[in-house]
Protein backbone atom coordinates (compact mmCIF):
# COMPACT_ATOMS: atom_id res chain seq x y z
CA UNK A 1 0.00 0.00 0.00
CA UNK A 2 2.84 2.33 0.88
CA UNK A 3 4.35 1.72 -2.57
CA UNK A 4 1.28 2.67 -4.52
CA UNK A 5 0.74 5.62 -2.21
CA UNK A 6 4.16 7.05 -2.87
CA UNK A 7 3.91 6.48 -6.60
CA UNK A 8 1.86 9.63 -7.01
CA UNK A 9 4.87 11.75 -6.07
CA UNK A 10 7.36 13.17 -8.54
CA UNK A 11 10.48 12.80 -6.43
CA UNK A 12 12.65 14.81 -8.76
CA UNK A 13 10.41 17.86 -8.34
CA UNK A 14 10.32 17.21 -4.62
CA UNK A 15 14.13 17.35 -4.32
CA UNK A 16 14.35 20.46 -6.47
CA UNK A 17 11.73 22.12 -4.26
CA UNK A 18 13.54 21.00 -1.11
CA UNK A 19 16.80 22.53 -2.29
CA UNK A 20 15.00 25.70 -3.24
CA UNK A 21 13.57 25.95 0.26
CA UNK A 22 16.98 25.32 1.82
CA UNK A 23 18.56 27.87 -0.53
CA UNK A 24 15.98 30.55 0.27
CA UNK A 25 16.17 29.87 3.99
CA UNK A 26 19.96 29.93 4.23
CA UNK A 27 20.46 33.09 2.18
CA UNK A 28 17.62 34.80 4.02
CA UNK A 29 18.96 33.73 7.44
CA UNK A 30 22.45 35.02 6.60
CA UNK A 31 21.15 38.36 5.29
CA UNK A 32 18.67 38.71 8.17
CA UNK A 33 21.48 38.05 10.63
CA UNK A 34 23.57 40.87 9.17
CA UNK A 35 20.81 43.42 8.62
CA UNK A 36 19.02 42.57 11.86
CA UNK A 37 22.24 42.83 13.88
CA UNK A 38 23.03 46.24 12.42
CA UNK A 39 19.49 47.47 13.11
CA UNK A 40 19.46 45.92 16.59
CA UNK A 41 22.79 47.49 17.51
CA UNK A 42 21.53 50.84 16.23
CA UNK A 43 18.32 50.50 18.27
CA UNK A 44 20.32 49.63 21.37
CA UNK A 45 23.02 52.28 21.06
CA UNK A 46 20.63 55.15 20.33
CA UNK A 47 18.40 54.23 23.26
CA UNK A 48 18.30 56.39 26.38
CA UNK A 49 21.40 56.12 28.55
CA UNK A 50 23.52 54.32 25.95
CA UNK A 51 26.59 55.33 23.97
CA UNK A 52 24.95 57.04 20.99
CA UNK A 53 21.81 58.24 22.78
CA UNK A 54 19.82 59.96 20.06
CA UNK A 55 16.08 60.22 20.35
CA UNK A 56 15.20 61.12 16.72
CA UNK A 57 17.30 58.28 15.24
CA UNK A 58 15.98 55.83 17.81
CA UNK A 59 12.37 56.80 17.22
CA UNK A 60 12.65 56.60 13.42
CA UNK A 61 14.47 53.24 13.52
CA UNK A 62 11.99 51.84 16.03
CA UNK A 63 9.06 53.02 13.88
CA UNK A 64 10.46 51.38 10.72
CA UNK A 65 11.14 48.16 12.62
CA UNK A 66 7.65 48.12 14.13
CA UNK A 67 5.92 48.81 10.81
CA UNK A 68 7.68 46.03 8.92
CA UNK A 69 7.31 43.67 11.83
CA UNK A 70 3.56 44.27 11.97
CA UNK A 71 2.67 43.78 8.30
CA UNK A 72 1.47 40.20 7.76
CA UNK A 73 4.04 38.46 5.62
CA UNK A 74 1.68 37.46 2.83
CA UNK A 75 0.69 41.11 2.41
CA UNK A 76 4.29 42.26 2.60
CA UNK A 77 5.12 40.02 -0.39
CA UNK A 78 2.39 41.63 -2.44
CA UNK A 79 3.41 45.14 -1.37
CA UNK A 80 7.00 44.39 -2.34
CA UNK A 81 6.22 43.05 -5.84
CA UNK A 82 7.21 46.30 -7.60
CA UNK A 83 10.39 46.54 -5.51
CA UNK A 84 11.30 42.90 -6.27
CA UNK A 85 10.66 43.21 -10.01
CA UNK A 86 12.70 46.40 -10.05
CA UNK A 87 15.54 44.64 -8.22
CA UNK A 88 15.56 41.27 -9.99
CA UNK A 89 13.49 41.78 -13.12
CA UNK A 90 11.07 39.05 -12.09
CA UNK A 91 8.85 38.10 -9.20
CA UNK A 92 9.01 34.38 -9.80
CA UNK A 93 11.48 31.79 -8.49
CA UNK A 94 13.31 31.31 -5.21
CA UNK A 95 15.60 34.36 -5.53
CA UNK A 96 12.58 36.62 -6.06
CA UNK A 97 11.33 35.59 -2.60
CA UNK A 98 14.52 36.81 -0.89
CA UNK A 99 13.83 40.58 -0.63
CA UNK A 100 10.48 39.97 1.02
CA UNK A 101 11.92 37.30 3.31
CA UNK A 102 14.76 39.53 4.47
CA UNK A 103 12.67 42.67 4.86
CA UNK A 104 10.05 40.66 6.73
CA UNK A 105 12.45 38.91 9.12
CA UNK A 106 15.22 41.47 9.77
CA UNK A 107 13.06 43.86 11.87
CA UNK A 108 11.86 40.95 13.98
CA UNK A 109 15.44 39.80 14.51
CA UNK A 110 16.54 43.40 15.21
CA UNK A 111 14.24 43.45 18.24
CA UNK A 112 15.69 40.16 19.50
CA UNK A 113 19.20 41.60 19.06
CA UNK A 114 18.21 44.71 21.00
CA UNK A 115 16.84 42.58 23.86
CA UNK A 116 20.02 40.49 23.88
CA UNK A 117 22.24 43.58 24.00
CA UNK A 118 20.23 45.08 26.83
CA UNK A 119 21.07 42.03 28.91
CA UNK A 120 24.79 42.78 28.65
CA UNK A 121 25.99 43.91 32.07
CA UNK A 122 26.32 47.71 32.16
CA UNK A 123 29.20 47.28 34.59
CA UNK A 124 31.23 45.45 31.95
CA UNK A 125 30.71 48.33 29.52
CA UNK A 126 31.76 50.79 32.23
CA UNK A 127 34.86 48.68 32.93
CA UNK A 128 35.78 48.75 29.23
CA UNK A 129 35.38 52.52 29.14
CA UNK A 130 37.57 52.78 32.23
CA UNK A 131 40.23 50.79 30.34
CA UNK A 132 40.14 53.34 27.55
CA UNK A 133 38.23 51.29 24.97
CA UNK A 134 36.83 53.15 21.96
CA UNK A 135 33.17 52.85 21.04
CA UNK A 136 33.98 50.54 18.16
CA UNK A 137 36.08 48.33 20.44
CA UNK A 138 33.21 48.18 22.91
CA UNK A 139 30.75 47.12 20.20
CA UNK A 140 33.09 44.59 18.66
CA UNK A 141 34.86 43.19 21.74
CA UNK A 142 32.25 43.56 24.46
CA UNK A 143 28.65 44.02 23.31
CA UNK A 144 28.53 41.47 20.49
CA UNK A 145 30.59 38.68 22.16
CA UNK A 146 28.77 39.08 25.47
CA UNK A 147 25.37 38.95 23.74
CA UNK A 148 26.35 36.16 21.34
CA UNK A 149 24.28 33.35 22.92
CA UNK A 150 21.18 35.57 22.68
CA UNK A 151 22.07 36.48 19.09
CA UNK A 152 22.41 32.80 18.15
CA UNK A 153 19.23 31.63 19.87
CA UNK A 154 17.48 34.63 18.31
CA UNK A 155 18.62 33.77 14.79
CA UNK A 156 17.46 30.17 15.36
CA UNK A 157 13.95 31.34 16.19
CA UNK A 158 14.02 33.77 13.26
CA UNK A 159 15.35 31.05 10.95
CA UNK A 160 12.42 28.79 11.77
CA UNK A 161 10.01 31.64 11.07
CA UNK A 162 11.85 32.17 7.78
CA UNK A 163 11.31 28.54 6.73
CA UNK A 164 7.57 28.99 7.18
CA UNK A 165 7.76 32.33 5.33
CA UNK A 166 9.39 30.55 2.37
CA UNK A 167 6.35 28.29 2.20
CA UNK A 168 4.08 31.32 2.06
CA UNK A 169 6.31 32.96 -0.53
CA UNK A 170 5.95 29.75 -2.54
CA UNK A 171 2.22 30.24 -2.84
CA UNK A 172 2.73 33.47 -4.78
CA UNK A 173 5.33 31.96 -7.08
CA UNK A 174 8.48 31.91 -4.99
CA UNK A 175 9.32 28.25 -5.56
CA UNK A 176 10.31 25.71 -2.93
CA UNK A 177 8.28 23.19 -0.95
CA UNK A 178 5.45 25.61 -0.24
CA UNK A 179 5.02 26.28 -3.93
CA UNK A 180 5.09 22.53 -4.65
CA UNK A 181 2.58 21.70 -1.94
CA UNK A 182 0.25 24.40 -3.20
CA UNK A 183 0.47 23.81 -6.96
CA UNK A 184 0.98 20.07 -7.22
CA UNK A 185 -0.68 19.15 -3.97
CA UNK A 186 -3.56 21.47 -3.24
CA UNK A 187 -4.54 22.55 -6.76
CA UNK A 188 -4.33 19.00 -8.20
CA UNK A 189 -5.83 17.53 -5.08
CA UNK A 190 -2.74 15.38 -4.41
CA UNK A 191 -2.64 15.08 -0.60
CA UNK A 192 0.46 12.90 -0.64
CA UNK A 193 2.55 15.73 -2.05
CA UNK A 194 1.22 18.05 0.66
CA UNK A 195 2.06 15.45 3.30
CA UNK A 196 5.62 14.77 2.10
CA UNK A 197 6.35 18.50 1.64
CA UNK A 198 5.15 19.14 5.20
CA UNK A 199 7.39 16.39 6.58
CA UNK A 200 10.38 17.79 4.68
CA UNK A 201 9.74 21.30 6.03
CA UNK A 202 9.52 19.86 9.53
CA UNK A 203 12.84 18.05 9.04
CA UNK A 204 14.48 21.33 7.96
CA UNK A 205 13.03 23.11 11.00
CA UNK A 206 14.22 20.40 13.41
CA UNK A 207 17.72 20.43 11.98
CA UNK A 208 17.85 24.23 12.30
CA UNK A 209 16.68 24.13 15.90
CA UNK A 210 19.14 21.36 16.72
CA UNK A 211 22.11 23.26 15.26
CA UNK A 212 21.02 26.44 17.04
CA UNK A 213 20.70 24.70 20.40
CA UNK A 214 24.10 23.01 20.20
CA UNK A 215 25.77 26.22 19.09
CA UNK A 216 24.19 28.31 21.83
CA UNK A 217 25.12 25.78 24.49
CA UNK A 218 28.70 25.66 23.27
CA UNK A 219 29.36 29.41 23.42
CA UNK A 220 27.37 30.18 26.56
CA UNK A 221 29.89 30.31 29.41
CA UNK A 222 27.69 32.26 31.83
Amino acid sequence: MLNTWMEEINWENMWVATWETIYMSLIAVAATFLLGTVLGVLLYLTDKGNMWENKPVHTVTAAIVNIFRSIPFIILIILLIPFTTFLLGTMLGPSAALPALIIGAAPFYARLVEIGLREVDKGVIEASQAMGASQWQIIQKVLLPEALPSLISGITVTGITLVSYTAMAGVVGGGGLGNLAYQEGFQRNNNEVVFVATVLILVIVFILQWIGDIWTRQIDKR
Binding site: G123, V124, A127, M131, P145
Partner: peptide
Protein backbone atom coordinates in the same frame (compact mmCIF):
# COMPACT_ATOMS: atom_id res chain seq x y z
CA UNK B 1 44.41 54.49 35.50
CA UNK B 2 43.40 50.97 36.53
CA UNK B 3 39.99 50.39 38.06
CA UNK B 4 38.65 47.53 40.18
CA UNK B 5 34.91 47.11 40.72
CA UNK B 6 32.66 45.78 43.45
CA UNK B 7 30.99 43.31 41.09
CA UNK B 8 34.22 42.50 39.24
CA UNK B 9 32.72 43.34 35.81
CA UNK B 10 34.57 40.58 33.98
CA UNK B 11 33.60 39.47 30.50
CA UNK B 12 31.98 36.07 31.00
CA UNK B 13 32.63 35.15 27.36
CA UNK B 14 36.39 35.29 27.93
CA UNK B 15 38.70 33.09 29.95
CA UNK B 16 40.81 34.42 32.83
CA UNK B 17 43.78 34.93 30.50
CA UNK B 18 41.63 36.59 27.83
CA UNK B 19 40.04 38.89 30.40
CA UNK B 20 43.45 40.00 31.62
CA UNK B 21 44.58 40.45 28.01
CA UNK B 22 41.58 42.66 27.22
CA UNK B 23 43.08 46.02 28.26
CA UNK B 24 46.25 45.03 26.38
CA UNK B 25 44.16 44.44 23.24
CA UNK B 26 42.61 47.85 23.74
Amino acid sequence: IGMVFQHFNLLWSRTVAENIAFPLEI
